[in-house]
Simulated scan of single mutants.
Amino acid sequence: MSVKHDLTQRTFEWAGAERLARSLLQIRAVEIYPENPFTWSSGWKSPIYCDNRMILGYPLCFDQVERGFIDAISQMTPGVDVIAGTATAGIPHAAAVARALKIPMAYVRGSAKGHGKQKQVEGRAGEGLSAVVIEDTLSTGRSAFEAVEALRAEGMNILAVFSIFSYDFAVCREKAEAAEVPAYRLLGFETLISTAVAESYVDESYLQVLKNWRLHPENYGM
């Protein structure tokens, strides 16, 4: 399956993105309520809630995501040495992809353990190895790019961050640019909301509201 590139944003969207969007909406991993927004831990009000942990309960959707990651990684970062998942949401997808590609896996804790060997990176790690980071959802990108830095502290070369879905916020793009690591996603914001409208999960009258929220999420509901 091919990948559609957007070099100006140093990102791409998987060619199976619309099908994936329909799957995430069907299993309610993504819910859209413009009139009754969710509150994120950051305090931002959001008309969209994405809980990709729901995918774990739906094997066909899980297989779809795995195929997307395999296609994208094989095309964008061929020859990668390690598939690294963020704890905890990226771990199951990293494990599935690493096994399918017969590539070693690692995972990155939010912080180093306070006991034992006090490691932050578990699994395959080492000087000079190339790695990609798998995250389930990119919003601000904080956890994904903290994982990038933890892997770099092990002497590893980070080729890219891959996610199932990205809100495509400017703050995440800025983190990617600062880290000089491209952030690739299987499904982007524009495709998600256009599919939601086409499949009648949200009324078309809210389309511009959702687009405006993505540009200025900190101001929504104020």
Rank of each mutant, 00 (worst) to 15 (best):
A176S: 09
V108M: 00
R173S: 15
S163A: 08
D6C: 13
T8W: 12
I91P: 00
E218C: 06
E13K: 09
E204D: 12
P92R: 02
K102I: 02
R152C: 12
P34H: 04
T39P: 01
N212G: 13
G141V: 00
N36V: 05
R99M: 13
R10G: 06
S163D: 01
E31G: 07
E66V: 14
G141K: 00
G110L: 08
L25K: 02
D71L: 06
E35D: 14
H216N: 15
L192N: 06
S42Y: 10
T8Q: 11
N36D: 12
E190P: 01
R67L: 10
F12N: 15
D6G: 13
I164C: 07
A178T: 13
P59W: 02
G110M: 02
V97P: 08
Q26S: 15
D51A: 06
E127I: 11
Y49V: 08
I55M: 07
E66T: 09
S46E: 09
A150E: 06
A98F: 01
R22D: 07
P217G: 00
R53V: 07
V65C: 08
Q75R: 11
D168F: 10
P78D: 07
A84Y: 09
I32Y: 03
A29L: 05
L159P: 07
C172Y: 09
V97I: 11
C61R: 11
L187G: 09
F12L: 15
P78A: 04
E122F: 01
W213M: 00
A94H: 06
A17Y: 07
T88I: 09
S139C: 01
E18Q: 14
P182M: 07
L159R: 11
G221S: 02
Q64W: 00
V82K: 01
Q75D: 15
F145K: 00
E174Q: 15
A179V: 01
A153D: 11
A100T: 11
V209E: 14
T140S: 14
E149A: 05
